[in-house]
Simulated scan of single mutants.
Amino acid sequence: MAETVHRPGLDAQGYIEREGSLARVPRAFRPVVAAARDRVPEVFGARLHSAYLYGSIPRGTARVGRSDLDLLVALREEPTEADRAGAGALGEALDTEFPQIDGVGTLLYGRARLLSDLERYDLGWFVACLCTPLLGEDLAEQLPRYRPDSLLARETNGDLALLLPRWRARAAEADDAESAENADEARRPLVRFMSRHLVRTAFTLVMPRWNGWTSDLHEMAGAFAAYYPARAEQVRAAAVRGYEPTGDAAVLRSYVDDLGPWLAEEYARVHGVKAPRPPQADQSRPEPPTSAA
């Protein structure tokens, strides 16, 4: 049996290290982060438990004018429509004020859900390993340490088969745009989103064997390629589109009719299927581990 190799992203004990920090925020983005830190409490008041950055800005790989500001806000109770409206308004204001970012995304969750047994190896792992504390008490202190094992793989990305019907519907909606130009523009964010999701899923499929963690799309695709050479070219191409998406309808068709179904079937065979979530848990796990560098 081949010896297990110690890969990047792990500490000396083999646990996934937290990947970002406020010290890594590039100088150009520090005013944005400071503004978010000041304004988040104004929006949520006493309902706020804690807030976090994730993605390329706290990893130190953000590009001026290209990267977005990604926030996760933990509330003391489940988010309401008023909370979501407040988050949307805050995001629009920051995006307008700071040209160095290209959009703001804010995820809202109740504290109890983030710490629940059901989410321990999905949203809990996300907070503990991929989020950087910005405000309040860090929930990571109440969560376990995580290894890149099959349980983590199953609970993070073992639901691809459930997502594919929605993806097909969204691709069809883009095809129905009034003009070819509009359709191309509608497909571009879908290609970006699906490319990232598929590359991340391909990576976590092999993550326990690769035995490490990375948030870089190209590194993810390379890790996958070592174990599935027949699909390597598809996943490497998806990694490229995750950073520089196209509006090609054929790309979306290949995702929802070929790569996606194959990956979902192989994932279920290797790791099993993610534990089902209740209908009210309508916010799926975010895509931040592959946000643009």
Rank of each mutant, 00 (worst) to 15 (best):
D11P: 07
F193A: 13
A112T: 12
H49F: 05
Y228M: 08
R147M: 04
W210D: 13
A172L: 09
D176R: 15
W262G: 14
E92L: 14
V256S: 07
A250K: 11
V240E: 12
R27G: 07
L205A: 11
A23F: 03
C129S: 14
D184F: 01
A238S: 12
Y227K: 05
A62S: 02
D122L: 05
G272W: 05
E265R: 15
D184G: 09
T80A: 07
R145Y: 06
A93Q: 14
A85L: 13
A89P: 12
R277T: 12
P26L: 05
F44V: 02
T4V: 13
V199E: 10
G55I: 06
S21D: 05
S150D: 09
C129L: 04
A140W: 03
A264C: 10
L115P: 11
L94A: 12
T80E: 03
A171G: 15
P79W: 03
T214S: 12
A239P: 13
E119C: 01
T204A: 08
I101L: 04
M220L: 04
D70E: 13
S291P: 02
R192T: 04
E185I: 00
L151Y: 03
A250T: 08
L151T: 14
A172I: 03
L151D: 05
V33Q: 01
P148C: 05
D122P: 01
L130I: 10
V104F: 09
P133W: 07
A281I: 05
A87Q: 02
L152G: 00
R231G: 07
T80I: 01
R241W: 08
E3N: 09
T246S: 15
L139W: 00
A28Q: 12
V73N: 12
E77W: 02
E265T: 14
E119Q: 12
D175C: 12
A62V: 04
G158W: 01
S116W: 06
V33R: 00
K274Y: 05
L130H: 10
A46S: 14
H49V: 01
R154N: 04
L151P: 04
G242M: 03
V73A: 12
A186Q: 13
T61C: 03
Y52E: 09
R30D: 04
L139P: 05
T246R: 00
E181D: 14
A226K: 13
R231Y: 09
D184A: 08
F44K: 10
S284W: 06
Q100S: 12
L10N: 07
R24E: 05
Q142N: 10
L22I: 07
V64K: 15
A250S: 15
G136V: 01
L53G: 03
Y267G: 11
T96D: 15
V256G: 06
G86I: 02
A74F: 03
R30A: 07
D175P: 12
P26R: 07
Q13F: 00
S195V: 02
M207F: 03
V73L: 11
S50P: 07
L152I: 03
A12E: 13
E97F: 01
A180R: 13
A268C: 09
A281Y: 06
A28W: 01
V240W: 11
F203C: 11
S284V: 11
S116Q: 06
E3R: 13
Q280K: 10
R231A: 13
G124H: 03
P261W: 06
I57D: 00
G45W: 02
L135M: 11
V206A: 10
L90V: 06
A221Y: 09
P31Y: 00
F29L: 05
E81S: 14
A223D: 10
A169K: 14
